[in-house]
Design a protein around this nucleic acid. Structure first.
Length: 287
DNA sequence: GCGACAG
DNA sequence: ATCTTGTCGC
């Protein structure tokens, strides 16, 4: 898909100082309120408007792609009107980042693409998008159509400068995005997360002194329990969900929960994670 | 100097 | 993220 804001494209050659100032600009351009073209409740297929046919595609998806793999399948027919949801995740092979994007419509995978780009800088908390952003944008460029919304691994607004990877990519592409992280980068939960939360529960995360661009107390995201053990003493840790761009904190969590399918990770992100991992084998050779 | 932080 | 055995639970 097309880059709407070239000035925000992540540049790993920038100084840490310039990266941070760019993030402040991105945060100001970001919209942390709903501006979606779709109904959050219908994002991941069957719901109230439950359709009909269901088939967990397994042998319909193939593979292709090289230093910039791609492969599109136009079969799966889910409600043609339901939103196109993208799941994005990265894996690494030597000094290269593999970004995988999976497109779902009504719960069915309709297209996948992945891109491989050399990693330029090490991982630095708060600057993740400058390390993985190039690969992500390359993968998005291979898609044959534009998603209505995308779920990315990592934070969005829950970030020191409210410009996590989901926000950076969302603003650059002017695409509604949701950040889905497995742990909290910053901010303070309104309630302790050290206890077993029931399935579907959400605990607000508010800005604290670590979030330098927001007034303390601002609702910047939620800890969301997308999955939980029922008859056990053990428990699953909640996911940390936050707005990337053009979605509110509540809607971001609604989307994550609507895409929950029995696993901790929402289906889009879960499938992208698996795809990114599967692709690693093929990528190792073409290097 | 100490603390501290997505993937 | 990545490297890996065993273990728990449905």
């Amino acid at each position: 898909m097309r880059i709407v804001h070239p000035e925000f494209v992540p540049d790993a050659s920038l100084s840490r100082e310039d990266m941070e100032s760019l993030q402040r600009e991105i945060a100001e351009a970001a919209v942390f309120e709903d501006d979606l073209s779709v109904d959050p409740a219908a994002v991941c297929g069957d719901d109230a408007a439950a359709t009909d046919d269901e088939q967990t595609s397994l042998a319909d998806v193939d593979a292709s792609g090289d230093a910039d793999g791609e492969d599109s399948e136009d079969d799966a027919d889910a409600p043609a009107d339901s939103p196109l949801v993208a799941g994005v995740d990265q894996s690494f092979v030597d000094d290269h980042a593999v970004s995988a994007v999976v497109l779902l419509r009504g719960g069915e995978v309709v297209e996948r693409a992945y891109a491989v780009e050399p990693v330029e800088i090490p991982y630095v908390p708060g600057l993740l998008s400058f390390r993985e952003g190039t690969a992500i944008l390359s993968a998005f460029d291979l898609l044959s159509r534009d998603p209505d919304i995308a779920l990315l691994d990592g934070s969005g607004r829950i970030h020191f400068r409210e410009a996590g990877i989901a926000t950076h990519i969302g603003v650059t592409l002017d695409l509604p995005t949701v950040g889905v992280a497995k742990s909290l980068l910053c901010g303070t939960p309104r309630e302790s997360l050290d206890r077993k939360l029931p399935q579907g529960a959400r605990v607000a995360i508010e800005a604290d002194a670590d979030v330098e661009t927001a007034e303390p107390g601002t609702h910047i995201g939620d800890a969301v329990q997308t999955r939980q053990f029922e008859n056990s003493d053990r428990y699953v840790n909640p996911l940390i969900v936050s707005p990337g761009h053009r979605v509110s904190a509540d809607t971001a969590s609604d989307v994550a929960l609507a895409c929950a399918s029995g696993y901790k990770l929402p289906e889009p992100t879960r499938l992208a994670d698996k795809y990114a991992d599967d692709v690693k084998a093929d990528v190792r050779e073409n290097l």
